[in-house]
Design a protein around this nucleic acid. Structure first.
Lengths: 240, 240
DNA sequence: AAGTGGTCTAGACCACTAC
DNA sequence: TAGTGGTCTAGACCACTTA
């Protein structure tokens, strides 16, 4: 963590933002930061650009760099900022204990869709893992995930009852740092209502997509069905 | 459009991707592209990084740069890629004619929340605009937006019946190119069901957040309530 | 060993904002 | 006019993948 120059700048600026060090909602200019941290302006710019994409700040050309008021307003909202991408770390927990109930665990040949999405050959078998996630015995989502066995061969019940991503990082030094995700919503189906304790009129939020390792290898195709109260996705969008 | 080197590279690569010019799902390496376009590798990298954030490609360190299979799978899915951020341009239209029904149009003092989100003083009045959006007489969302009059003073019924963003770009040369958005879902309320013709059990998707001008000025706080079938949000997430 | 993307430097000039 | 972020160059060295 924080091995690179730009990551150290991000960590330091975030710490200062939370400490209220920029009361005027304004960061020092790029050239000052370059001097302060004794790095090139390019490295400062790289840090600030990533912070902008994380929804922490925004830049005003000709004026300066400012803290995003929505970031201060609702910190917990920025699920994906500053942690890894695993479920365990990213849904609002408020100190509650996360639990996992394994509903399915098998190895199957990849469908054509999976072959394309995960860059697989027909003979590249995949784990199919279905898990229900809970906080303090309250279920909030269930997930169907597909992971090629050529990337990891020794998954077992104990591992998938915890965080697969943490296991991969700790035991195999494989970090999950990128994903492409679609987010949408549907009326709940009977299985949703059973597993997530939803009423007839309450919907599910759906997130599905591909998780990538730090080196760009597609690791998992995941389909998550989420209790609507637990899905709040925050994002920065920019056009070219 | 395409005035800068990196934008020209984006446009050209996208054209080639759609033309199926990279059948192996792989782009040329950065140094080759640098030579091909006669620009520095940094400029190539800037283009590729933006394309990665747009969900078009992903990079594999040590291996190369590849086309995102989800991008090919469902083009229409990437609502925000390659156009501006206005509603008119971003919901799946399939050639249908977009319509707008104005439900409210007034000027009010900014709430404290709006003052913070749009960087306003208490005396900076805002337009409050409520609009229902339809395709071929089928309503798909309604939106409440707040725009400071200090940015634009001459909005009228005719303008807000069309695209405000297009008007700002054409008449005032103000381009909307960035936004911070929260996406979530709720059971539909009575007003939702009335306006969007939803059944009791069908939900609304909600997108709310801030739109920024190209220069970073916060332009609008917007709250959109969307028929669940029309909300599909696609995004790239990366951790530092 | 060769090839690829990642990080980083030390500048230059431009476009825009604020005064 | 001075200050700010945006674009761009021409390199350097590193980490990782592939063969």
């Amino acid at each position: 963590m924080a091995e690179f120059v730009y990551k150290q700048i991000i960590d330091d600026l975030k710490k200062k933002i939370f400490a209220g060090q920029f009361a005027d909602m304004r960061l020092p200019d790029e050239r000052s930061l370059s001097e302060l941290y004794q790095v090139s302006r390019s490295s400062v710019k790289q840090a600030l650009t990533k912070m902008e994409h994380a929804g922490i700040i925004f830049k005003k050309r000709g004026s300066g760099t400012f803290i995003n008021p929505l970031y201060i307003k609702n910190e917990s909202v920025f699920n994906y900022e500053g942690s890894n991408l695993g479920v365990t770390d990213n849904f609002h927990m408020n100190g509650q204990k996360p639990q996992t109930r394994v509903l399915g665990f098998e190895v199957i040949p990849p469908t054509e869709e999976l072959q394309r999405d995960l860059f697989l050959e027909p003979h590249d078998f995949v784990y199919k893992i279905v898990r229900l996630r809970l906080f303090d015995d309250v279920p909030f989502m269930f997930e169907t995930g597909y992971i090629p066995i050529k990337i990891v061969q020794n998954l077992n019940q104990t591992i998938i009852e915890g965080s697969i991503f943490n296991y991969l990082e700790n035991a195999h030094n494989l970090a999950v740092t990128k994903s492409f995700m679609s987010i949408f919503a549907e009326p709940s189906q009977e299985q949703d209502r059973e597993l997530l304790l939803l009423k007839e009129n309450e919907p599910v939020g759906i997130m599905e997509g591909i998780f990538f390792l730090d080196n760009g290898t597609p690791l998992e195709f995941s389909h998550m069905r989420i209790h609507y109260q637990y899905l709040k996705f925050n994002t920065f969008v920019s056009v070219q």
